[in-house]
Amino acid sequence: MHRTRIDSRELIARLKLEPHPEGGFFRETYRASGNVTRENESELRAASTAIYFLLCDGAHSAWHRIRSDEIWHFHAGDSIDVHVLDANGALVTHRLGNALDHADTVFQAVVKAGDWFAAECHDKDGAALVGCTVAPGFEFSEFELAAPGALEARYPQHRELIERLGPKS
């Protein structure tokens, strides 16, 4: 099996990645010039946006949610687990990776608008480069990082995972 090893420092420099508030590193690579509005709203949004997102050095993407659907795309490195909690408390974990080499992985996964989600490298010492496409486009004004204790109280059956992937203090 072939796996692309990631030199995190070199990739951060080459792709001009910056620290992301949820953890990891990112850079927006696309923002549609066309705009859309959500049903029953008047505020214009870019139709779509895309980023590179790198997890490395034991970092994780802390629990958060946005108001748009987000598609995660695997690019290189180790497998990454995207954990999703829906409004009813159901937990689904999507394992992104090279699906040609690993039957338990997928190249793409969708997180629906409003669902809470967090991500981590399947191997805690791993590094993974993924892409995230959001439609309507991502705006930080619609990004909500989970408040400490809030998700644990709402979904006590997932307490251990929620606490492990909470925001860094």
Rank of each mutant, 00 (worst) to 15 (best):
S8A: 15
V110H: 12
L145S: 10
W72P: 02
F74I: 06
S61D: 08
E41Y: 09
A103H: 14
P19E: 01
V106D: 09
I66E: 04
A128Q: 07
R9S: 14
A13P: 06
E41P: 02
R95N: 07
G23M: 07
G89A: 01
S68Y: 02
G34K: 13
A135P: 01
L17G: 02
D69C: 08
L54D: 01
F25L: 10
A153P: 03
A150C: 12
T37M: 03
W72Q: 02
E120K: 07
A109P: 15
D123S: 08
E28S: 11
E39F: 14
G23W: 08
E160T: 10
A150M: 15
R27H: 10
D78K: 05
H94M: 10
W72N: 00
Q108R: 14
K124G: 06
K112P: 15
H83D: 12
E160L: 07
P156W: 00
T4M: 10
S169C: 03
F107K: 12
D125Q: 14
F53M: 02
V36M: 08
F26S: 04
T29G: 01
L44F: 11
I12T: 06
F138L: 04
D81R: 07
A32S: 15
E163S: 15
V36L: 05
D104G: 06
G34E: 14
A87P: 11
E28H: 11
A99T: 07
D86Q: 03
R9V: 14
A87F: 13
V92H: 10
S68C: 07
S8T: 12
E43I: 12
I162N: 01
D81C: 13
E39P: 11
E120F: 09
G126I: 01
P136K: 00
V36T: 08
L54R: 00
R45D: 01
L11R: 01
R14S: 14
S42F: 04
A128R: 05
K168W: 13
A59S: 13
T93H: 05
N35T: 11
K112M: 10
I80N: 12
H83Q: 09
A119I: 07
R9M: 09
L54A: 01
R159Q: 08
A32Q: 10
D7K: 09
D115E: 15
W116Y: 05
N98S: 08
N40E: 15
G97R: 03
T4H: 09
L151R: 06
P19Y: 02
E39A: 14
D125A: 14
R65Y: 10
R95K: 09
D123H: 06
A109S: 14
C121K: 00
A13E: 12
S8C: 09
L44R: 11
N40T: 10
R154D: 08
Q108S: 09
E10S: 15
F140M: 09
E22A: 04
L15Y: 04
K16V: 11
L85F: 15
T29F: 03
H83F: 13
I162W: 02
A13R: 11
V130F: 02
V106Y: 04
D69Y: 07
E41S: 13
L145D: 05
L11F: 01
G149D: 08
Y52A: 03
